[in-house]
Simulated scan of single mutants.
Amino acid sequence: DKSLYNNVLYTTHYSPDDTSNAKVQDFIKSYKKANKSADPNTFTALAYDSVYMMAQAIEKAGKNATRESVRNAISGMSFEGVTGNFTLDKKGSPKKSVIVLELKDGKPQYKTTIQPSK
């Protein structure tokens, strides 16, 4: 009985039902267009954000970016992506928002996004 799991909450990085983040629906449309209507999953969303976060760091590092200047650009960086908003500390560890999903009849439903405390 799938209803036994109703009201179970859990966290994740990404939900296609997240309407609080405008980037999510654009990401899904672009991904489906490029991948013959396949649905992106959490790992796809994380990879997408990783690439764009690195691009942001390279741009910030400048025209003649070096390995060191890119590393320095990542330190303390804030990024808004498909998987949420986060800030990296000086060592590169993220302080990140999380998606909360709730099971309803055995299917995950977007519930809310929790932002990290300042």
Rank of each mutant, 00 (worst) to 15 (best):
T12F: 04
N21P: 00
F43I: 11
Y48A: 06
Q56R: 13
K32I: 07
T83K: 00
K96T: 09
A34I: 08
N64L: 11
K95E: 05
I114A: 12
P40T: 02
T44Q: 07
I74L: 11
K95W: 03
F86H: 15
N21W: 05
Q25K: 06
E80Q: 13
M77S: 07
M54D: 04
K63R: 15
D89S: 14
Q115P: 05
G81L: 01
P116L: 06
S78I: 07
V51N: 01
K95T: 09
A65N: 04
Y110F: 00
K107I: 09
T66N: 13
V8P: 03
M77G: 08
V100N: 05
L101K: 02
L88D: 10
H13P: 14
V70Y: 05
V82R: 01
N6R: 06
A45G: 01
P116C: 06
K2C: 11
H13A: 14
S117W: 12
S97V: 10
S50W: 04
E80W: 07
K104M: 05
K95P: 00
N21C: 12
S15T: 01
A45E: 00
Y14W: 07
K96G: 11
I99P: 03
N21H: 10
A73V: 12
G84F: 03
G106K: 01
V98N: 10
A45K: 00
P108H: 06
R67L: 09
Q109A: 09
L9A: 13
S93G: 02
D89N: 15
I114H: 08
L101G: 03
S97A: 12
V51Y: 03
T113M: 04
